[in-house]
């Protein structure tokens, strides 16, 4: 199971906890995780990535294994630790503003 951490506002929108566990078919990538997330929680469509373009919202970041994956390809494979559920895939609202 992939463990995905949602930011506070998306937890409330989805009526979900901090961590949601998702079954994701390999290869596990940002895109496949977000596809599974949006299938489980349709109200999150358009909030993490743009509805029309599929691009990450500019103030959303993706962290895992103490690294920032925001600028890597959405189809790039994620680390084994994320695939095996040992590490969380974190969707983060960027620290923008005061």
């Amino acid at each position: 199971m992939i463990r995905v951490v949602l930011p506070y506002h998306l937890q409330r929108l989805a009526n979900a906890g901090r961590v949601v566990e998702l079954e994701v078919e390999p290869p596990v990538s940002q895109r496949s995780i977000l596809d599974a997330l949006e299938a489980r929680y349709p109200m999150l469509r358009g909030t993490v990535r743009h509805r029309a373009t599929g691009e990450r919202q500019p103030f959303v970041r993706f962290f895992a294994c103490n690294e920032d994956f925001s600028l890597t390809s959405p189809d790039a494979p994620l680390p084994d630790a994320v695939v095996q559920g040992k590490e969380e895939f974190m969707i983060v609202g960027a620290m923008a503003g005061g």
Binding site: L13, M43, G46, T47, V48, R51, A52, Q57, V60, A94
Partner: peptide, 28 residues
């Protein structure tokens, strides 16, 4: 709406006591 998380449209059928997120696909 949010600069971080884009656009959501909410709908209520009980005067705002409860809400449901509906479609937010505004494609030109």
């Amino acid at each position: 709406t949010s600069d971080w998380f884009g656009q959501v449209i909410q709908r209520s059928d009980d005067g705002g006591a409860t809400w449901e997120a509906v479609n937010n696909d505004f494609t030109y």
